[in-house]
Nucleic acid binder design. Sequence first.
DNA 1: GGTTTAACTTTGTATCACAAAGTTATAAAA
DNA 2: TTTTATAACTTTGTGATACAAAGTTAAACC
Lengths: 98, 98
Amino acid sequence: MIDFDKLDKTIHEKGRLSIMTMLASRGEWKFQELRDQLKMSDGNLITHLRCLQKVGYVSTEKELKGRKVTKYLLTRSGKKAFKGYLRLLEQIVEQGSS
Amino acid sequence: MIDFDKLDKTIHEKGRLSIMTMLASRGEWKFQELRDQLKMSDGNLITHLRCLQKVGYVSTEKELKGRKVTKYLLTRSGKKAFKGYLRLLEQIVEQGSS
DNA sequence: GGTTTAACTTTGTATCACAAAGTTATAAAA
DNA sequence: TTTTATAACTTTGTGATACAAAGTTAAACC
């Protein structure tokens, strides 16, 4: 029996799941890129990013030269948590297709 | 790019996801079995089941003889929807491990 | 008839996704 | 050097909903 208590709610929420998936698939994303790709409002996106930062899954890099640009990336802990989350998804897929 | 808009919110919620996974892995489950396995309160479980019934993913069978027992199972539409959901999970897993 | 049991309903609360509007700071234009 | 534009961020409000707890109903067994 799959242990659904282990399902990380921070990652599981649709908006943050999409963010995490993007960050996992490529090193860095600008705020703008995330917003445009995911078609989220500024407020919604930044709230989710803040939430992911607060639990330590995401960090930022600021470009100091040129226009103000913020890049977001997964932390080591974020990568680990996402891996764990994916492992649970795999279990669900496996059990669901049996 | 994965289309997260397609992610079925009815299924995605943790509680209902666990229910759907159980129903997908075995034909029928009694209310009691679901409640005990998933450690949900009566009220919470039935609310999720009602929600799944309302969108047509789950149906019930009542035993008419003996003690009152209700069994829950996936409808054809529920199986189809769950399959679609799993396909999206597979995409996430794939993209996440690239 | 009374008790137990399974399923179900109702009610209340706390959380949270999301949008919209407002704020700040910097860079380019004028 | 004032103005305008832009990117990131904050604040506020609202609606939705997960969940628990307590109450209700109906059938079966004593």
